[in-house]
Simulated assay, not measured.
Amino acid sequence: MATTTMNKDSRIYVAGHRGLVGSAIWRHLESEGYTNLVGATSSELDLRDRSAVFDFLHEQRPDVVIDAAARVGGIHANDTFSADFLSDNLLIQVNVMDAANSVDVDRLLFLGSSCIYPKFAEQPIKESSLLTGELEPTNDAYAIAKIAGIMQVQAARKQYGRHWISAMPTNLYGPGDNFHPENSHVLPALMRRLHEAARDGAESVTIWGTGTPRREFLYVDDLARASLFLLENYDDPQTINVGVGEDLSIRELAETIATTVGFEGDILLDTTKPDGTPRKLLDVSRLNDLGWSAQTSLDEGIKTTYDWYLDHESSVRAK
């Protein structure tokens, strides 16, 4: 595979640079000496507005684009607002990629999600599993949007000869996450609930489902490292998985977080709530073979995330 040299003065546009993923990528690029970074907040630039996105890209003329922008949420948000998740994500990525192509951006990284894979894909999930089975119905709208993004990357490579790539990270968490009690992903949602239970002296906490589904969790700063690594070392139309190669049950995750936040009560299960996909572990052998692997253990990542949460609890409480 071809290797692309990223110059420290390359003009890099990070779409979604204030979000969980984008902010981590921005931090990592800065720490690696990249000084010509471009970003715009959602209030400054609505990525669903096609003409505004084209105007912005034509004004900024980036050399590299990293598309980390998306409307995201947990199982409840995905299932409840499926039309919004489909429409908004399609608009964001089509606008960003079409505008990037119009200003001859030759290097672009599109970040998707492991929910693109079939609900009952063989575990661990290889990249070749894409489009081989039915999706998990609670987040199929979001998944379809992300699959469309992969297809657009491949189409741009084929039609225009662009060196664009896509990567599919597993479940992400870390500083800057969304801790909304209903619309967040499972790890930050559990962290907030267990923290508040410990603070209030609650005797028990109830979690959704049977607790048996297994999930893999990647610390967001590891994804940021992987993103730069892929821009420097990967050039292939097939998407590539980014994960840690290990998983645990939701019940085990809750127990791990409970230990971190100091909750000593009972963890109860509400089996009337949906479990979602029974297991979602990515095969990361292709990325590992290139020379990259995750560095942050789950215990370490949860501790760092909880420290951030404590420092920002007053601001995240209202979200």
Rank of each mutant, 00 (worst) to 15 (best):
S113C: 09
S113M: 04
S114Q: 15
I116T: 15
I116C: 15
P118L: 11
P118A: 09
K119Q: 15
F120M: 14
F120R: 05
I125Y: 03
K126L: 14
E127Q: 13
S129Y: 10
G133T: 13
E136V: 01
T138L: 14
N139K: 05
D140F: 01
A141D: 12
A141Y: 08
I144F: 09
I144N: 09
A156F: 15
K158H: 15
Y160T: 09
H163V: 02
S166T: 05
M168K: 00
T170W: 03
L172K: 08
L172C: 08
G174Q: 04
G174R: 00
P175S: 04
S184I: 00
L187A: 11
L187P: 04
P188D: 04
M191N: 05
M191F: 07
R193K: 14
L194K: 00
L194Y: 02
L194A: 03
H195L: 01
H195R: 03
A197T: 03
R199E: 15
S204P: 10
I207M: 12
G209F: 11
G209K: 11
R214Y: 06
R215L: 12
E216Q: 13
F217D: 06
F217L: 13
L218W: 08
V220S: 03
V220W: 09
L223R: 03
L223W: 01
L223S: 08
L223A: 07
A224K: 05
A226Q: 05
